[in-house]
């Protein structure tokens, strides 16, 4: 099933490029088109491309990570960066910026960090859904395997 030479060669090449593109998208997000959601989708595309080319088992090994934990951590991380403004007496998620831009990265503030959290959540959830759907025949080879709710995406 997974035997296209062209796809395999391209997929191998594309993994680092897509991951870099994802980070690029993430960092330019607060002023230009891009952002955590788009970046996260690009990053999960990198893994999904491996999955299409080599199969889900290889994709798990290419980027070994607990994607669900990444998603949960992303939610926590994004939420935490709304808290400083709350402690400072301003409404939740009010943006706070460093006064000077950092060379090479740009301006750093809570929205950027919030976006990192969104990025992690999207990477985790999207990749987990895709991998689970692809792994499903491997996990439950019989026609009517034991059912569970693993396919459920978490909001």
């Amino acid at each position: 099933m997974y035997d296209s030479v062209i796809l395999r060669s391209v997929a191998r090449l594309m993994l680092p490029i897509l991951l870099m593109l994802a980070v690029f998208m993430l960092l330019r997000g607060h002023n230009l088109p891009g952002g955590g959601f788009i970046g996260g989708l690009v990053a999960s595309c990198a893994v999904i491309l491996q999955m299409v080319a080599f199969g889900p088992t290889f994709a798990r090994r290419a980027l070994p990570a607990n994607y669900l934990a990444i998603a949960a951590f992303g939610v926590l991380f994004a939420g935490v960066w709304g808290l400083p403004s709350l402690i400072g007496g301003q409404p939740f998620l009010t943006s706070l910026w460093l006064p000077q831009p950092i060379p090479g990265v740009g301006k750093i503030g809570t929205p950027v960090l919030f976006d990192v959290g969104v990025f992690l959540t999207v990477v985790g959830v999207t990749t987990q859904i895709a991998l689970l759907l692809a792994e499903e025949p491997l996990l439950f080879p019989t026609e009517r395997g034991p059912a569970d709710g693993e396919g459920a995406p978490r909001a």
Partner: peptide
């Protein structure tokens, strides 16, 4: 009245923590 955010923040964080 920033306390109005608490019933949203706390369950969200709690859900993420419980998953972790």
């Amino acid at each position: 009245n920033n306390h109005l955010f608490l019933p949203l923040i706390v369950p969200l964080m709690g859900a993420a923590l419980a998953v972790l």
